[in-house]
């Protein structure tokens, strides 16, 4: 049975021979995963999609430079995450005021409905607020379901560092979401009275 790596390498060999059908297949294999990861990183769908386009454009431009000793997915993810980091750095440098920021800072978003959807929204916001290095590791591991080894390869850091960053991200999220999680815990126990947190 062909592994994902072999499939990717076969596609890449065909792309190197200017087979655009193979490139289309490669794009289809990764585009949704990438856009999902970049959306979690940037919190902007349009930007995420633009960066995924840039990623594939770079893959196509540098297709002849690809080194088959490495995993293709690692290469693609590294490009995408570098672009995302550049974008985040640029955003940090030139801070823009957006309606979203104004809502966050001034007006409370309407979110009083209890239940799983509400928790999801809070979780979305909490992930967006994570520091970049924790967020990157967390998104790759928990959102994209990558293995720790793959995350370590993509980020170019030791395995222990990845585990520590993911753990740290989960701990931050746990603290951020504590009230909502407590509500949920109380509901799951069948009691409507929230349990006092420590």
């Amino acid at each position: 049975m062909e592994t994902q790596k072999q499939i990717d390498h076969d596609l890449m060999r065909r792309i190197q021979r200017d087979d655009f059908t193979a490139f289309d297949k490669l794009v289809d294999r990764y585009k949704d995963r990438l856009v999902n990861v970049l959306f979690r990183m940037l919190n902007d769908r349009n930007e995420a999609e633009d960066l995924v386009q840039d990623t594939f454009l770079r893959v196509y431009k540098h297709r002849q430079d690809y080194d088959f000793t490495y995993c293709l997915s690692t290469w693609i993810y590294t490009i995408a995450l570098n672009l995302a980091k550049n974008e985040l750095r640029r955003k940090k440098k030139f801070k823009f005021f957006s309606i979203f920021d104004m809502q966050e800072n001034g007006v409370e978003l309407k979110d009083n409905k209890p239940g799983p959807q509400s928790l999801k929204m809070v979780l979305d916001k909490a992930i967006a607020k994570l520091p970049t290095k924790y967020k990157t590791a967390f998104v790759l591991r928990d959102v994209d379901q990558m293995s720790y080894d793959e995350v370590a390869q993509v980020l170019g850091v030791p395995l222990g560092t990845v585990k520590s960053r993911v753990n740290r991200a989960r701990a931050i999220l746990k603290d951020e979401l504590r009230p909502k999680l407590e509500e949920r815990r109380a509901l799951s126990k069948g009691s409507l009275v929230p349990v006092r947190t420590m």
Partner: peptide, 22 residues
């Protein structure tokens, strides 16, 4: 809390590319 965060993260809505992406 940990298991809830893990579970909820796995159930987050996936963003997909637009139809004319390719």
């Amino acid at each position: 809390y940990f298991s809830e965060i893990k579970g909820q993260t796995g159930r987050l809505d996936n963003v997909r590319t637009r139809i004319d992406f390719n």
